[in-house]
């Protein structure tokens, strides 16, 4: 079982994600430069956060044209779990692997803050460790994280259970004050129709060690553990 952590020029959460997968969870993870990615040798992939190509033009758009995305698209079609975190989410959106758009935060400022994120649907490969309604404490850090989808698309996302994470308040409600960037319906993460490709703006790798959490939580591990278990299940098939 092998997880690829894909590095683009400007990716900067690659080593952090590697540390959590490899050192904390003892998974077989490998850092791989985007030009070298061949998904035949990997069972899943994480596109970590950062500023691929400096966020120039639009966050994620230049990386979305990389040959690595052809590899990831094929892997996605094969049902392999693929996770995009923050800039990775932006890349998956720009390359069309995930629906919708990510716009500039409504505050027009970069925002770094710990938020509450509620697990919505149960059919993604990245939430099998979490019950629906579970609240995960994770930090966000982004400039372009305002999720947007138009009427019909939004309705189909809701209907298909593709909305995976929402920003909520302490009481678990997707309220306006708990929405850090103006995302429509407080959406923090979505999946493809099949549920094996997921992107989210919060950083689970930064919320995976109690030492680094203001709340002594390790909620981010739920997402990585779900991913690893899903890979195991897929491999057994």
């Amino acid at each position: 079982m092998k997880v690829a952590i894909v590095q683009f020029p400007g990716t900067n959460c690659d080593r952090d994600t590697y540390y959590i997968l490899k050192d904390v969870l003892q998974a077989d993870a490998e850092l791989i430069w985007h030009e070298d990615l061949g998904m035949d040798t990997f069972d899943s992939a994480v596109i970590p956060g950062g500023f691929s190509y400096g966020d120039n033009l639009r966050a994620g758009v230049i990386a979305a044209h990389s040959p690595a995305l052809r590899q990831l698209r094929k892997a996605g079609q094969d049902g392999k779990p693929i996770l995009g975190i923050c800039n990775g989410f932006q890349i998956l959106i720009e390359s069309g692997l995930l629906p919708g758009a990510l716009l500039r935060n409504s505050s027009l400022r970069f925002v770094c803050r710990w938020v509450n994120v509620r697990v919505e649907a149960g059919n993604s490969l990245f939430t099998t460790f979490s019950r629906n309604g579970t609240i995960l404490k994770m930090p966000i850090a982004h400039n372009e994280g305002r999720y947007y989808a138009e009427g019909d698309l939004l309705a189909s996302l809701e209907m298909n259970g593709q909305i995976i994470f929402k920003y909520v308040d302490e009481g678990g409600q997707p309220s306006k004050p708990s929405n850090p960037n103006g995302s429509i319906l407080n959406i923090a993460g979505v999946s493809n129709y099949e549920g094996n490709v997921v992107g989210l703006m919060p950083h689970p790798e930064r919320a995976s060690e109690s030492l680094l959490s203001p709340f002594r939580t390790t909620d981010g591990l739920q997402i990585f553990r779900s991913m690893l278990r899903s890979v195991e299940v897929l491999l057994k098939r």
Binding site: C13, D16, Y19, R109, C112, P139, R206, L212, P214
Partner: peptide
């Protein structure tokens, strides 16, 4: 000010700004 800074990247930050 500090919410405009990514103060978490690198997995080093035990005490956050303001703590």
């Amino acid at each position: 000010v500090y919410e405009q800074f990514d103060y978490e990247v690198g997995l080093h930050t035990v005490l956050k700004p303001g703590d």
